[in-house]
């Protein structure tokens, strides 16, 4: 294969599904909101929800996904030992 990009070949016969494009947009928006919120320092999921205006369950899903792909890391539980606090992981150079 090497140089021929097969993606292009497939693109001739197949369009990216609308749903996938929309989903990507939505996820990126939410990701951005969470990143902005976390830029203020350590935060728990309810904190982020409050600040970003997202539903807490959405924050859980999106942020845990960010955690899975190494963008966020947990620090430890809060004072009440109820919620974990999270922070942004410094990007690898």
């Amino acid at each position: 294969m090497g140089t021929t990009k097969t993606t292009k070949i497939l693109r001739e016969t197949r369009k990216p599904p609308e749903k996938a494009l929309e989903n990507r947009k939505l996820f990126t928006e939410r990701q951005k909101l969470i990143t902005n919120s976390l830029a203020n320092g350590l935060q728990s999921i309810p904190d982020i929800a409050k600040e970003s205006g997202l539903e807490p369950e959405v924050v859980t899903y999106v942020m845990m996904s960010m955690r899975k792909y190494g963008e966020v890391t947990e620090i430890g539980p809060d004072e009440m030992n109820e919620y974990f606090l999270y922070q942004l992981k410094p990007k690898n150079p």
């Binding site: 845990m64 955690r67 947990e74 030992n81 919620y83």
Partner: peptide
């Protein structure tokens, strides 16, 4: 959101779990 199936809990308890600990799906509370 805080009603889950046992299989979802099974994943939360597994070594390759989705979260950093067992957490409520709704708001991440332990």
């Amino acid at each position: 959101k805080n009603v889950m199936t046992a299989m979802e809990m099974e994943r939360q308890l597994a070594p390759t779990r989705p979260y950093n600990s067992v957490l409520r799906p709704k708001d991440g509370k332990m």
